[in-house]
Design a binder for these strands. Structure first.
Lengths: 301, 301
DNA sequence: CAAATAGTGTCTATTAGACAATATCCA
DNA sequence: TGGATATTGTCTAATAGACACTATTTG
């Protein structure tokens, strides 16, 4: 219990925790984004207020809404710190690490208990442990995971004064080095968006190619030729046509597709060292990668 | 100090350590490999003996030797456990985590103190923490790094009864889940071999295209068309001709190349969340990735 | 000279991307 | 029926790979 003085403490093993970067698709922030964008150092209150307004839009128009014309955008739930250091700043959801649970279980528990969200994808991101990262606090090692929640699940967030969604390009002031961590998670997502299962976790079960296209553009931040996109995606054999169509306006309706379940995946990523074997847990199976993790990656850069 | 009984202990935070998978290039194991290969469950003594013999070959023919005809192969140094559990088995070099050091520093210290090696590349691999992984021991979280040592540096290993090199395809029985960790590190290397700086860390300062080609084949385990390989590599602009040539036998001598130092790297990987800022440390700068880490990755799979 | 590796040429298949053109719905 | 999006066609550039060929050493 006794921690001793500073010099003694420095040679001690550090504290270890788990944090999660949660990503969901929501509507673009319209004017709101323009207002709060690039406001890393802006005052805090207006942003959170804006964010709340925007997230109400998210809840109202909602994840259930299909991304018609509106461009989609990534949203991240954060929790407000109620103690020093960084009291009042926003931070990633996190929790303790327990010896009797796997790291993934700990991450899941932290995520679930602080946000009520149920992700359908969860993967280790990186472990951060520089002594300087917890300015003012005790040295801390954070094992960080990143998670994806679908449009449907994203409504489960119980928003309050201490939990709120923020659009990826208008984040509030963040505690510790969490800003850097989020940036890294976004990089990882942008990289992994090529894996079809990743995009699947963001869009939902069934979708039009235009919607999927929108997700890719939202994640990558670049314009992607729709014609080539649809050819490439269809040629990959990952999608199957549901046979149904959906009308979304005064124009030709689009076909609905879904990701092929056990589709042949000759190319896969060697990303997780082992299968995340959680097949029967209440959570969705995010273990499609079980197979993937065993195959050598084919294209490298 | 008091750990309490089992059920109490289970809810405690786990122990945390650092381990390192060290990879170096050495000669192919010839008959030795054939003998010891696929002997995951074979008796221990012959393998270590074989390994010692082979590693003497490594030391004799040595990292200094140029890979003439002999195919190269990856070698990994391991340390023998001197306590339970897994007493007598081989394990990855590792050590404690200290709160006043970065994770990378801790990894470097663990690596250096147990093997005397000085890597010229070090990167976080993954953090392992499943409760079941330390069968018989206390629950343990291992933050694992992987390292590359060059041919020159690989001689620094002080081999003894408790430290020895093993060829990647003839590993002895390993403690804990270290076998799985090594496999994952090999996957990571095979994936990253496309990054020119990675191969550079294995071959040495100057090399012929045939040697570099050999490294790629050794790492990937596949035959690569030499003609296309040299075109591709040269076209990348990563290499520069030293102007010198080296004769290696009764045939036309080959040009010596080196990796261009601050070469333009329009394509790079988003792999490390931050720059490993160790510019002035006694270790080599493995922070070429500083730049890389900030750029979006271009090709994904 | 002849063996052996260094290095170049050429062809084909595949893929990515730009951009035009057509199809089909419904307000 | 016309506006709008869905869907298809076509062309070009870039890339990867297979494989034949030429060049240059030294024993």
């Amino acid at each position: 219990m006794g921690i001793g003085n500073v010099s003694e403490r420095r040679s001690q093993p550090p504290q270890v925790g788990v944090s999660v970067v949660i990503l969901a698709l929501g509507p673009a922030g319209d004017g709101i984004v323009a207002d709060g964008a690039d406001a890393g150092a802006a005052s805090e209150t207006p942003i959170t207020h804006i964010s709340h307004a925007a997230s109400e839009t998210l809840a109202a128009n909602g994840p259930g809404r299909d991304t018609d014309g509106a461009r989609a955008q990534l949203w991240i739930p954060l929790v407000r710190r109620v103690r020093q250091p960084f009291l009042g700043d926003w931070a990633l959801p996190g929790g303790d690490l327990r010896a009797d649970r796997s790291l993934e279980d700990s991450a899941y528990a932290a995520l679930e208990s602080t946000t009520d969200l149920h992700p359908n994808y969860l993967e280790q991101l990186y472990t951060f442990g520089d002594p300087g990262r917890s300015q003012g606090g005790l040295p801390m090692v954070s094992i960080v995971y990143w998670a994806l929640v679908g449009r449907a699940e994203s409504r489960d967030l119980a928003e309050g004064d201490n939990v709120a969604w923020f659009p990826e390009n208008a984040l509030p002031r963040l505690a510790f080095d969490h800003r850097r961590i989020i940036d890294y998670a976004l990089d990882r997502l942008r990289y992994k968006i090529e894996y079809p299962q990743i995009a699947a976790r963001l869009v939902g079960d069934e979708f039009t190619l235009a919607q999927l296209h929108g997700v890719y553009e939202a994640v990558t931040g670049r314009a992607i030729d729709l014609a080539n996109f649809r050819r490439r995606i269809l040629a990959s054999g990952e999608l199957e046509d549901t046979g149904r169509k959906i009308a979304q306006g005064r124009h030709r309706p689009a076909s609905l597709y879904r990701y092929a379940r056990a589709a042949a995946q000759p190319i896969a990523a060697a990303d997780a060292p082992q299968a995340n074997a959680h097949a029967q847990s209440p959570r969705e199976e995010w273990s499609d990668d079980a197979l993937s993790a065993l195959l050598p990656s084919a294209i490298a850069q």
